[in-house]
């Protein structure tokens, strides 16, 4: 059981680290491009710089496709935020997958409940 826990901790820990670093990289690059484009360092509440989508999943999918088509500072910063926001979801997904593989049905049920509730709440429009 102890080695199982260590494996789960390694999988979740390194997955989180990769996603957090990727998000950090995209946000730094996006912010540098924003400043180098001649924008001031002041916070701008311009609607063009706002995130607005129906829900989390449509936001993530549209952001990925926009960033691939046009890696502008808006799309890169937006993608960084989407990846960062995806990390807690990833934790729940990996935990469910892990407990299924480890045949720990008690925690498969517990983590599945958490994942289902989070998924439903993220689909709400």
């Amino acid at each position: 059981m102890r080695s199982n826990n260590v494996a789960l901790e390694s999988i979740i820990g390194y997955s989180l680290l990769i996603c957090v670093m990727l998000a950090l990289f995209l946000e730094i690059v996006g912010l540098m491009l924003y400043i180098s484009a001649g924008n001031s360092l002041s916070i701008s509440l311009d609607q063009k710089l706002s995130v607005q989508e129906e829900n989390f999943f449509t936001y993530t999918l549209r952001t990925i496709s926009s960033a691939i088509r046009s890696p502008s500072y808006v799309n890169l910063m937006s993608l960084g935020i989407a990846i960062l926001m995806f990390t807690p979801y990833l934790r729940a997904v990996f935990s469910v997958a892990y407990f299924i593989l480890a045949k720990n049905y008690k925690y498969t049920l517990i983590t599945s409940f958490v994942l289902v509730v989070i998924t439903i709440s993220l689909m709400v429009q």
Binding site: G30, Y34, V51, S78, P88, R91, V114, I118, Q125
Partner: peptide, 27 residues
């Protein structure tokens, strides 16, 4: 993080998440 994410759709739909605020806050 998971609890905050569960309530995030409301904020995404609201249009109040601003990239010049969110990006430096995230960094």
């Amino acid at each position: 993080g998971m609890t905050a994410l569960a309530g995030s759709s409301v904020f995404i739909a609201s249009g109040f998440i601003n990239l010049t605020l969110a990006a430096p806050m995230a960094i």
